[in-house]
Nucleic acid binder design. Structure first.
Length: 167
DNA sequence: GCCAACGTTGGC
DNA sequence: GCCAACGTTGGC
């Protein structure tokens, strides 16, 4: 596998379902390298972006469907895409009867906690000229996994006074 | 392959 | 809770 430059992403989660605090707890509890599996993505565009992720990529953890919505912290990809097991589980709300084990339709990645940021609301993101092209600030943007430019990632971390190092 | 109907997301 | 925007489904 050819090495490629680190990439940056934004992933949305409803904090009632899974928040940055949950990720921190899951990462801490399974020392030294706890993780959470990002299951349940059932959108092809989002899936395809997850399949592009590599270990070491950094992720803006976005809280959606809450008031206010916004970026709550940073996570790191610690396992590249592999089949999402919930698609084969009839009891799961993510069950997909059309997906076959031999040819899984849906993927997930594993993340680990990096840090909290001072919460950056969507309104603040929209008010920041350097972030005007981010997908998340576009009207009607529903994509739950999206790529972020390095400069945008840096600017958001700075807004949140984060310590995440971006090389 | 078109497109209307339907379901979901997610800000407000 | 509303509803606009978007994605998916399925009849034709």
């Amino acid at each position: 596998m050819a090495k490629r430059a680190r990439m940056y992403w934004l992933m949305k989660s409803e904090p009632d379902e899974y928040s940055i605090d949950d990720l921190q707890r899951d990462t801490d509890e399974c020392c030294p390298r706890g993780r959470c599996s990002w299951d349940g993505v059932r959108n092809y565009q989002a899936r395809n972006f997850m399949r592009e992720m590599a270990v070491g990529d950094l992720v803006l953890f976005y809280h959606s469907s809450t008031k206010p919505p916004g970026v709550a912290g940073v996570a790191e990809v610690c396992r590249a895409a592999y089949p999402d097991h919930t698609q084969f589980d009839p009891k799961s709300k993510y069950y997909d009867p059309k997906s076959k084990e031999a040819e899984p339709r849906w993927s997930m990645v594993d993340l680990q906690y990096v840090e909290h940021l001072a919460f950056i609301s969507l309104a603040t993101l929209k008010d920041t000229p350097a972030l005007a092209e981010m997908k998340v600030v576009q009207k009607g943007s529903r994509l739950s996994v999206q790529p972020v430019r390095k400069a945008e990632f840096k600017a958001v971390v700075k807004l949140g006074k984060g310590k995440t190092r971006v090389r």
